[in-house]
Design a protein around this nucleic acid. Sequence first.
DNA 1: GCCCAGGTGGGTA
DNA 2: TACCCACATGGG
Length: 236
Amino acid sequence: MELRLNEIYARLVAHFGPQHWWPGDGAFEVIVGAILTQNTAWTNVEKAMGNLKRAGLLDPARLHRARETRIARLIRPSGYFNLKAKKLKTFVRFLFDEHHGKLAHLFKRDTASLRAELLAVYGIGPETADSIILYAANQPIFVIDAYTRRIAARLGLSREDATYDELQRLFTANLPRDTQLFNEYHALLVMLGKHYCRKSAPRCGECPLREMCPSARPMIDRNSSRKGRGISASLR
DNA sequence: GCCCAGGTGGGTA
DNA sequence: TACCCACATGGG
């Protein structure tokens, strides 16, 4: 298994190049982005983040003081704005109540306790918690998302109904525990998912993993027989 | 007009 | 535990 995960990574890097996700943005921006992107396209999140930034609210203390209704108005483009405003407020309240408003204080604890503490906060589930741990706290944990789930299933690495923890174990048990590797690997899987391994109408003909993917051919056949948008159309 | 997007929490059986 | 549902905007 380890060999395949290594080969997958090598192919993705060769195809997409290094991603450098969330490097320059501060840890707090990463957290806000992680909450706003829940079940939402990143382009919409960028609009909402821009609004928050212009309003000077990409700052724990200022966000803590801001009205929830105002936050909701600003993050409207990211969808679920009432819910996400509540989640953002809940997080900063937690940060100030438990950690003096300092992310450095929160991030001091070991990965397992940090994860447990984040999961206890309203609005933070496994993926958001792990995104925060990996991309904001820079601790080695593998993030599982809809793309990772779909790609792993199509590659035959996991069952369709695998749980979050099972998928996470698949990657962490077969890769060196390295923050930078986990960061790049997850970002590359998202790129693959967006461009080739889409939910409907996957573009297997151009996928860098097509030779090692058992679902590639049936996927192409289904599409080409139905709409003529399979490998022949993809390869032009 | 329809499907989809870097999920999560709450309710019901 | 296992489903089902609400939450909502914007792009293809």
